[in-house]
């Protein structure tokens, strides 16, 4: 199968510090990939480069075989590349329902309408209802974001990503900050995703990683040091060293 998303030789430095050093990665439709690595390894930066939130110093990004290296994040989102944020970024004054409406309307090219309301669009309302109930957000549908608990904001962040009907979904630590009692909702939502969607999830919780991923990629000090099946990752010597911190130190010293 041809890759739906391809990152080729991405590089990014902040000041003198190389944060992403020649990283290449391909995702195919239906992939379930976990991207793991120590704190500060460059995982979020990698996602930012892929989505266009940051400009890479060199390298290319392709969606469905077409280069989007020179397109901004909006264009990439319209081509089906959707992300969630590690630290929730939502609109404090909007309700949960309005968030999803905005995403659905934008996806369908309707946000430039000057009159009317999503409330009068039965399709949109139905879709919002399904998304809210999938993530257990029905009770806070009409609450403004600033009035709902952080754990529920995390769930809304995921619902928002799903509302855009992505082809590639990049989730940056979706379960971080979600109470244990609610992580089941996230897992259930992930399990229900369309089979041909490609998902890359950054996650520190290894139990979640093992339940979700069919492939694990390990990033350490800006480079991929492992790419393979979950069973093999814990046995890998380089991965063990990276998590002990020695690997990162060696690379930084050069």
């Amino acid at each position: 199968m041809s890759p739906i998303l391809e990152a080729r030789n991405l590089q990014k430095a902040f000041g003198g510090l190389k944060v992403i050093d020649d990283v290449s990665l391909r995702l195919e439709p239906g992939d379930r990939v976990a991207l793991i690595g120590p704190n500060g390894a460059g995982k979020t930066t990698f996602v930012n480069l892929v989505t266009g939130n940051l400009r890479s110093d060199s390298g290319d990004v392709l969606i469905g075989g077409a280069s989007v290296t020179h397109s901004g994040p909006a264009e990439r989102a319209h081509r089906g590349l959707v992300r969630s944020f590690q630290v929730t970024r939502l609109f404090q004054d909007m309700t949960a329902e309005e968030h999803l409406a905005l995403a659905i309307l934008e996806r369908d090219g309707k946000t430039h309408r000057l009159a009317g309301s999503y409330r009068a669009m039965p399709q949109v309302m139905r879709e919002i209802g399904i998304l809210l109930s999938t993530l257990g957000l029905g009770t806070v549908a009409h609450r403004k974001v600033r009035e709902i608990a952080y754990g529920q904001q995390r769930l809304l962040e995921i619902a928002l990503a799903l509302a855009l009907r992505p082809k590639v979904l990049l989730l940056d630590e979706p379960a971080a900050g979600v109470p244990q009692s609610d992580t089941g909702r996230i897992e259930a939502a992930l399990a229900d995703l369309p089979a041909d969607l490609a998902v890359l999830m950054i996650e520190h919780d290894m139990d979640l990683v093992f339940r979700f991923a069919r492939r694990v990629v390990v990033l350490a000090a800006g480079a991929i040091i492992f790419d393979g099946p979950p069973q093999a990752v814990t046995r890998d010597q380089r991965v063990r060293e990276a998590y002990l911190g020695s690997y990162a130190n060696v690379r930084r010293a050069h």
Partner: peptide, 19 residues
């Protein structure tokens, strides 16, 4: 609604596909 979103967080709006 789109404009309210832009006022609060233009970067977030971009990630949702809007310019």
């Amino acid at each position: 609604m789109l404009c309210r979103g832009i006022k609060e967080d233009p970067l977030r709006i971009r990630s949702m596909g809007a310019s």
